[in-house]
Design a protein around this nucleic acid. Structure first.
Lengths: 217, 217
DNA sequence: CTCTATTTTAAACGGTCGTTTTATACACTG
DNA sequence: CAGTGTATAAAACGACCGTTTAAAATAGAG
């Protein structure tokens, strides 16, 4: 029993690392099992299928991230109401910072891993992840969207919908291509941007983009 | 000879359609050849390899898009110099509109195809496409970057580098996931955003994001 | 028409993939 | 200690992939 948990854990820890590095479809079960020093068949024994393994990997991070995000959003809403002021777009966006940082309790490089997993999940198995997220954490997502809306009362929901997904795309691209981009930036400008700084650079960008005035309302 | 060109053309026309729809790696040569009603081996005969076919597909669009973009950028620079005013970020970004529209001469839905190809090319074979683009059209890319820089003299090159790639990510994500997102938007808001409108919605977003003031200069 | 070079075709190759099967080793309970 | 249910192990399965081979068909030139 103790040994069994260790095998299952070795699989999931190795899998999320390789998934984050190369994507879900590019990572074979044979890579995972040989890297984790377990038998190939043990993946299907413990998880049922590769798709179920992917879900298990994502769920482990979502279970930490989503409730933390919900707490941050609620806190911001209450704080603003108490102070009698309305939060701004950047305030809502900043709510993702702490939940992301909390993923370090899953794994030391948890925040980076999660963002990269998200990127691959969205670009490879699109409907799949979205359905899972909305089923389990739909209320958090809706709360986030509602607060972005109330921070931008002059923009219509359709425009905000698209701008939020533009933002998501910007973040996912920066994470998935992050390593290559960081190398290019380092060789072009000498400046070495760390993975954590990428998010710090991203937030002002998407905050300004989302809050931009709409030329076609 | 006449028949030969028709076969080669049937392959490339079918390939770019399927590539744009499902991505490069998800599209097999057997799908392409059966859809195009040609023999499987004819791909390797006419193009040498699958990778070479991908390059041929991309090159056909880049050959139209890149020179047109260079012309637009040059025209904007000259027009601004003559008028004695400096162009703004949105002006530089708007330079991609006409070159994109020009892709209709390659194929009626050329603009959409090209953007989706770009998205997959960047997310699947990252170094590959970038190297090809920089080798053949490096000067155009550099001119574009230089003009974005001169439109934002208060922002450092490193910040602009990242913001441009955030913008690229936003566009690629919107295109690759465009179909799914459009369906969600339609069911959530009743509004049906067409593929062309997506780009119109994107430009104000990235223009504001790129030009945002930098909190950490 | 004949010959030659180009193109098309069918078939097979070697490889990787996720999954399943079957047998063996292990841990725990009664 | 025996027996039962769980976990590991090796091997094979069937499917699909990109590519290659070698023969058949088709062109155009002399």
């Amino acid at each position: 029993m103790a040994k069994a948990l260790r095998t299952k854990d070795k699989i999931i820890v190795t899998a999320e690392m390789l998934f984050a590095e190369h994507g879900f479809e590019q990572t074979s079960l044979r890579q995972i099992t040989s890297e984790a020093n377990v038998n190939l068949a043990s993946v299907n024994y413990h998880f049922g299928s590769k798709k179920a393994l992917i879900q298990a990997v994502m769920a482990r991070y979502q279970a930490v991230f989503m409730p933390a995000l919900a707490a941050q959003l609620q806190e911001l809403a209450q704080r603003s109401e108490r102070a009698g002021v309305t939060y701004r777009t950047a305030d809502v966006l900043a709510c993702v910072n702490a939940p992301l940082f909390a993923l370090k309790q899953v794994r030391v490089d948890g925040p980076l891993i999660y963002l990269r997993l998200l990127g691959y999940a969205y670009s490879e198995i699109q409907g799949h992840l979205r359905r899972f997220t909305m089923t389990h954490y739909g209320d958090v997502v809706h709360q986030f969207f509602a607060m972005i809306q109330s921070a931008n009362p002059n923009l219509c929901a359709n425009t905000l919908f698209w701008r939020l997904h533009f933002s998501l795309g910007a973040m996912l691209f920066a994470q998935v291509s992050g390593q290559a981009l960081r190398e290019i930036a380092a060789s072009d400008f000498g400046e070495d941007t760390h993975a954590e700084e990428t998010l710090a650079k991203l937030l002002p960008f998407v905050a300004a983009g989302i809050a931009a005035s709409d030329p076609q309302p």
